[in-house]
Amino acid sequence: MLIALGAVFAAPFYWLVTTSFKTNANISRWPPQIIPDPWTAQHYIEGVTALPFGLYLVNTLVICVFATLGTVLSCSLCAYGFSKLRWKGRTLLFWIMLSTMMLPYQVVMVPLFHVFSKLGWVDTYLPLIVPAFFGNAFFIFLLRQFFMTIPLSLNEAAKIDGCGEFQIYSQIMLPLAKPAIATVGIFTFMGAWNDFLGPLIYLFDESKYTLALGLQMFLGQYGNYFGRLMAVSTLLILPIIMLFFATQKSFVEGITMTGVKG
């Protein structure tokens, strides 16, 4: 059952990888070749040398690491505030935050650009990094849902033991919500890794571009480098796969709640 389903889910990746090894003439064959014949590494060599691959990799990683760090920190704090603390206006602010997601990005793009332009941040990584430190509605909501499942009695107990709110947050909540935090981490990292629109709009210098944007360089007005697109796409998602594979345990190994009665 798992294997059959797995084949269905792995198909696109298989197709992506095999296409990247096909010759140009065979890429357009129909029906598609299941196994490339002949195999060629040409697209990888050309793809990696056509881009400043190392530089774009570094650029991408810098943005990803900062964005992930910022999101995890700010969102877990906010979610804690939204789930475990009582204060006036909590529900209202939660709804306002939630509703900000309901407006399509396309219409806030232009005024948002104005803000960054006024701040003098255009053509830097700041528009791509700094907002992460100010929370993200999606992840706050996600973490809030997780924190809500953690018994409040834990908080009470900690308070009696003399813990401050920040200590409760960092010593109790974060470790307990580790699967959720890991989820937020990988999602943010991936989001920043694949983001194409943000770098496209805010960066005015090709040497600052990211890999996802560099990938677009293989798509033209008149014709595409389809093989290179596939080859660099494969290179682009391999690290994500490895990262996911290495961290997938943390999604499921959070402190199990045995012994803690709700």
Binding site: F196, I201, M217
Partner: peptide
């Protein structure tokens, strides 16, 4: 100073930049 301002796949990006 040449800057590639992608139109996205199949023009999906429009002229957003």
């Amino acid at each position: 100073k040449s800057v590639f301002a992608s139109n996205g796949a199949g023009g999906a990006g429009g002229s957003q930049k």
